[in-house]
Design a protein around this nucleic acid. Structure first.
Lengths: 335, 335
DNA sequence: CTGTTAGCGCTTTCAA
DNA sequence: TTGAAAGCGCTAACAG
């Protein structure tokens, strides 16, 4: 029975290259130049011949650091999260780190569980799209961290994400320009989610300031009946081009698109727009107007911010905390 | 400056509990019962007080295994992949493993890179949604593995995924029953992707056998003009209820939905159905008929299959390699 | 049951 | 430049 081809070790390479462990170690570390050309040659050959690759676990044990970053995602099935994750991944690779991604599925208990796991694997830094209020755990662990999209109370940490106030302002400006005068603002329940709160507050404040009539609708449990009823009431005093629905994120947009369809309400005459761009928004006749988030940049900047904390760079990496959305105008906001 | 709260170690716990390293080690391993109640008490308390948690890196070093599994995803922005990943994640947790996910972004070079990284972190097993033909690398590494959705030539490994033949058969049966007689089969280019090949072959074989008129259209580079032209030609001899488009996966469905829209072709009179369920299929009037893959089961079974290779279980975990899709009938296949 | 003693594969002083 | 030796935090025989 073919024994599992056990990986070659430092010692074997050293032996084959006729040198010591230290030299081989140096060859694979930052001190490679301190080795003579000839030695480098021999080590390189020996390593290649044996298919040697340093064992990161062992490396991490002694001072060296694990070169591992951890990422917590609140809901991996949310396209926005995946898109950001994509940016994070690329940036990690660029900066020479590997990434462990954990999905909390919106469960605070799972979040705690994963935090423990990541700590057990000695991650050097954490990128957190929080679901619960794990501030204390995070504080205790003392691991460098960045928050993604959502803030956590009482935790001193940088938050990277959309400029929520700007997004709401852009949405309202667009709706006003298109002539809508009454707005139904739809969001998932804002408790415990700083982003939803921020958007909601800004909406209420600015909608008032701009003289809009407005209402809010909080989605819960993916119940579709209640929001449909709500929408029906909202558009009741039907006047084409007067009412519009503004969705706080992709999930809200999906829910309301369903309601429009179920009620047979025409988009445009009743406006519809949402924060977060989804591949089908363009497809739905006449197209749904959205504010697209720069997900790749957000992901990259989160990593950049974290790396700044981990390494004392000569010139710190530049990054932005508040990103601007891009307005994609489509038929759903053409009265 | 507050020094980073360095994690407590085995020794500190042992000291505090007034015992030896071994006992503490045993407490956290499978031999906990072999310790007296009183000792267990003391260790538990000391550990809790110090917030101690075993260092997995160190554990993995000595025999113990890393308890890490690696997953390679060809395209993380594909909802199907994400859904499967979700199932994989849950299963990993259930079986007591942690997971490192790597996205290859359909780049064979990146695939090689990630394979190396995962090896460096001593993953005990690999779940692979392959993009390239990394068979040799995998063979050399000797790491236990399962293939997800796609096979790799010359690599002896179990493949977990959809029963492609069954899926095509179900699709054709449905289209026949709805009265369509001519089919345009749309797929991304099948080179190097076993799944696409399997579906295409089965389609051609069965479509012939069932007496369908048929053509195939291969998508490339997200070009949308060519497929539109193709669709236009295909439906030219317009006869409501005669022609239907069958899409090999979600990407194909998205592309064709775009074409239908651009050309103003009505779904239903010209049939449209696809493999892979997407959240917007139900939304597009009149709804797109799909074959949904049981993504959670596929993910779980991939892990189960892998765990069977890793552990010699008394009763091996049961799993299926070929999963059945579920037909979701909607308006797009109602002539 | 519990403690002692070797390492696991690698990095890192400290000398040479 | 290079090598020898001492661990990193933990597990695994092997004795008591």
């Amino acid at each position: 029975m073919p024994s599992p081809p056990t990986r070659a070790t430092l010692i074997e390479v050293a032996k084959r290259a006729g040198t010591s462990k230290s030299s081989v170690s140096r060859f694979f570390g930052p001190e490679r130049d301190k080795l003579s050309q000839s030695l480098q040659q021999r080590v390189a050959e020996a390593a290649a011949a044996l298919g040697y690759q340093p064992n990161q676990m062992a490396r991490g044990l002694k001072g060296g650091g694990s070169r591992l970053l951890g990422m917590m995602v609140a809901d991996i099935r949310n396209p926005f999260s995946v898109a950001v994750m994509h940016g994070v991944e690329i940036a990690c690779r660029d900066f020479g780190y590997s990434l462990i991604v954990c999905n909390t599925d919106n469960d605070p208990a799972l979040e705690q569980h994963h935090l423990a796991t990541l700590a057990a694997y000695q991650v050097e830094g954490l990128i957190i799209n929080a679901v619960g209020q794990s501030g204390q755990t995070l504080l205790d662990s003392g691991v460098p961290r960045v928050l993604l999209d959502r803030d956590i109370k009482h935790l001193n940490a940088e938050v990277i994400g959309l400029d929520n106030a700007l997004a709401i302002d852009m949405a309202l400006a667009h709706l006003a320009q298109q002539g809508y005068r009454s707005i139904l603002y739809v969001s998932e329940t804002p408790e415990h989610t700083s982003t939803r709160q921020a958007r909601l507050e800004r909406f209420q404040q600015q909608a008032d300031a701009m003289g809009f009539t407005h209402q809010t609708l909080m989605l819960s449990h993916w119940d579709i009946d209640a929001p449909c009823a709500n929408l029906a009431t909202f558009v009741e005093p039907y006047a084409p081009g007067h009412c519009a629905v503004l969705c706080a994120n992709g999930n809200a947009t999906l829910a309301m698109a369903r309601c429009f369809k179920r009620l047979g309400v025409a988009m445009g005459p009743v406006g519809l727009m949402g924060i977060d761009e989804l591949e089908w928004c363009e497809l739905m006749t006449p197209g749904i107007t959205t504010l697209a988030q720069p997900t790749d940049s957000i992901g990259r900047d989160a990593v950049a911010c974290l790396v700044n904390q981990l390494e004392r760079r000569a010139t710190p990496l530049t990054f932005h905390s508040r990103h601007s959305p891009q307005l994609l105008v489509r038929g759903s906001t053409a009265p």
